[in-house]
């Protein structure tokens, strides 16, 4: 674990642990409900990458900063403070979902939580996030847009149009690359001419930093620095989070492009939740009872979210024609 955050308080460590565990248990439950046929369509699980959004959320200004991401978005929504029940209900296509079932797994928003989606097209959120940053600057509201994208999207042309515009206009945006090592079924080494994705802003004068995205404290440290840099008017900055997804690209991907041993090794050696739990124990920050208490609380929250979603009514058929020009 990064130890430059030795000032992180016991309470914060507990919150980080709880947040990451909440995301993991949510995703495990979503996977389970998908297997039972209760969730249909696409479902991209975030298991393994929890430290990235949890750390960035902790580093951000919750009142001011906006967030936008791709379709692997459940973790981002929970980290943004959205209600797990509402997110789960949307996955199940129910009327209490964040979009009343009209968005689904990949397309959920909460303006209240400054979460601007949930975007299904690889890379499309990058120019839009740049636009959110443009609005922060135009309104001088002190906010920064945290724009997440994956290693797959890093090879999209629109990313570089956005880099140029953001650097030219010195927009307050932190581009967070969640490099989970596979763009769908193709590894970064087989898809990217250069693998140091965080350095790809160099042609535009955008600084980039490589971060251990499996270490929540390292994410917080890098996130705080990057957010300050953008907030102070220096323009965009890139964080290259080295992370890993344990599950397939989506529920329909058996992930045969990598070995079981590879996944097991990451789980055993780098798991962000295990690592934080060990760190907390070693430093006697929380007692094992306190940790167990968090585990139980998270289990209950997720169980309640799943029940809420399953009991939520199906959307009214009238919803087909609402919120659109007819």
């Amino acid at each position: 674990m990064s130890d430059s955050n030795s000032l992180v308080t016991k309470e914060v460590l507990g919150q980080l642990y709880k947040q990451m565990l909440l995301i993991r248990r949510f995703e495990e439950k979503a996977g389970q409900l998908y297997g039972m046929g209760l969730i249909q369509g696409f479902c991209h699980l975030y298991i393994g990458q929890e430290a990235v959004v949890t750390g960035m959320r902790n580093a951000s200004n919750k009142e001011k900063d906006s967030i936008i991401t791709s379709y692997r978005d459940h973790g981002h929504m929970i980290a943004a403070g959205m209600d797990p029940g509402g997110v789960m209900a949307e996955l199940l296509g129910r009327s209490d979902g964040y979009s009343k079932g009209k968005g689904g797994s990949m397309h959920m928003f909460s303006i209240k939580n400054k979460f601007y989606g949930g975007h299904g097209i690889v890379g499309a959120q990058v120019p839009i996030g740049t636009g959110l940053a443009f609005a922060h600057k135009y309104k001088s509201d002190g906010g920064v847009c945290i724009t997440y994208y994956g290693d797959g999207a890093a090879n999209q042309g629109q990313v570089y149009e956005s880099f140029n515009m953001a650097a030219l206009w010195k927009l307050p945006v932190v581009y967070v690359i969640e490099n989970n090592r596979y763009g769908m079924g193709t590894s970064v080494s087989r898809a990217s001419a250069t693998q140091e994705l965080f350095s790809r802003g160099s042609s535009f004068g955008i600084p980039g930093e490589k971060v251990d995205g499996m270490d929540v404290l390292a994410v917080i440290e890098a996130g705080e620095k990057a957010l300050n840099y953008a907030r102070e008017g220096n323009g965009p900055i890139i964080l290259g989070m080295q992370t890993y997804r344990y599950r397939g690209h989506s529920m329909s991907d058996p992930a045969q492009y990598r070995t079981r041993e590879e996944v097991s090794k990451v789980r055993a050696e780098r798991d962000p939740i295990d690592k934080l739990r060990d760190y907390i124990s070693e430093n006697n920050s929380l007692t094992s009872e306190e940790i167990k208490g968090i585990d139980t609380e998270v289990k209950e929250v997720i169980s309640a979210a799943a029940n809420f979603a399953q009991e939520s009514p199906r959307p009214s058929l009238n919803e087909l024609y609402t919120d659109v020009i007819i």
Binding site: S66, P127, E161, M165
Partner: peptide, 23 residues
């Protein structure tokens, strides 16, 4: 009145992001 780079995706992305927040 902002002159942009020749970057149509960035132009419309910027416009959409700005529009979502009330501009």
């Amino acid at each position: 009145v902002r002159d942009t780079p020749i970057s149509e995706q960035a132009i419309l992305g910027a416009a959409m992001g700005a529009a979502m927040t009330g501009l």
